[in-house]
Design a protein around this nucleic acid. Structure first.
Lengths: 196, 196
DNA sequence: TTTACATACATACACCATGTATGTAACCTG
DNA sequence: CAGGTTACATACATGGTGTATGTATGTAAA
């Protein structure tokens, strides 16, 4: 079978990202040697260093794929809702659920900032999760739904709280109870922003 | 000069922690070889692996020293205030200021969770910053100052938001403006908890 | 279609960092 | 001061990263 170069590249890159994602999710970035990833992907380290500058480069590709998927899910949930308010609630629920998955937990919520540095991590997030949340809040503010606040700061603080909430649920002995608690706190915060 | 064994141990451990703290603050845990730390401390790696199980052990000692100092500062600021409410505000200010220092930024807010794992990191925090905040909120709740909420969850979410706020200020082009923004958001959240 | 080049890998190597095993000097106790 | 313990230093084994080099496959022009 005769494949074009682009096909070859796309194939091995996809295989590398998929293998790396699984292994990183299970044991974390540091604990996984590059060699193990490439073997799982059916290639050698030569392929890795051909397509990516270094191990971090591959990790970044994994993070971006994850974020893309995640944002898409949340945006879809938001889109299905009749109005903005219920959409926000639905989006929060989907996001919280997604954040309970091991890959999101370990890769996005734990390793990403430390491995890539906060600058890069922020840059990535701004184009995905944070970007979406900012848009939603901004439009809510424009429509007079919420009080006057600096939306970018608000969005980022809310996002960090939501992420922490997800970590708490994942680590809790009683996830259901913890989830109820954090949702109560977060819901209270959000409703306090509503214009009376 | 004849020194006791305890003195020797305490001296080298303090030197190691101090050297590690500086280097970790500047370049992060991963980028600093153990050998560089020990040289800066005037010993060899033998001393390190005698006093600590591994490099992580030393890092943990650094984190705990940092957290201890930080909590002490905040508690002192709180203690100087006439009442609980102004105390909370003063404490927040001191904490935000402290979080702007490079060592706190890099070691506590960036590396600690990834290097030690969230479990251990939480365990440490529970005895310091988070513990203090929880106590304060709990007493406020007991005195009927704030509404009925699950305090542990509230404390942890507030803390994560405050830490993110500190990171934002540190990374901002216009720190003063950013600080004003995040303080507005956080103050709004806190006042929304007050009983009317 | 053959020749020349570029792309996609594999193999082999040099380097560096961690942790451990072993040796030695300082201290402590009877 | 003799024996044992503690506090280190030195030497070594291991493993992981990144790079240099070699090779096969696809691509394009003569």
């Amino acid at each position: 079978m005769r494949r074009t170069q682009q096909d070859r590249s796309a194939g091995t890159k996809a295989a590398l990202v998929a293998a790396a994602r699984e292994l990183f999710a299970e044991r974390g970035y540091q604990a996984v040697p590059a060699d193990e990833i490439t073997r799982a992907a059916g290639v050698t380290r030569g392929a890795l260093y051909h397509h990516y500058a270094d191990k971090q480069g591959l990790f970044r590709a994994v993070v971006e794929q994850l974020e893309r998927e995640l944002t898409e899910e949340v945006a879809a949930a938001f889109g299905r809702a009749p109005d903005a308010l219920t959409g926000m609630t639905a989006g929060l629920g989907v996001f919280l659920d997604a954040c309970l998955r091991k890959d999101v937990q370990r890769i996005s919520l734990t390793d990403a900032p430390a491995v890539l540095g906060w600058e890069v991590w922020r840059e990535i997030e701004a184009e995905h999760g944070l970007g979406l949340l900012t848009e939603l809040l901004e439009s809510a503010r424009a429509n007079g739904l919420i009080v006057e606040v600096p939306v970018p700061a608000l969005a980022q603080l809310i996002l960090s709280a939501v992420m922490e909430a997800a970590r708490m649920i994942a680590a809790a002995e009683d996830p259901a109870q913890t989830r109820a608690d954090v949702q109560q706190v977060l819901a209270g915060w959000l409703t306090s922003l509503l214009r009376t």
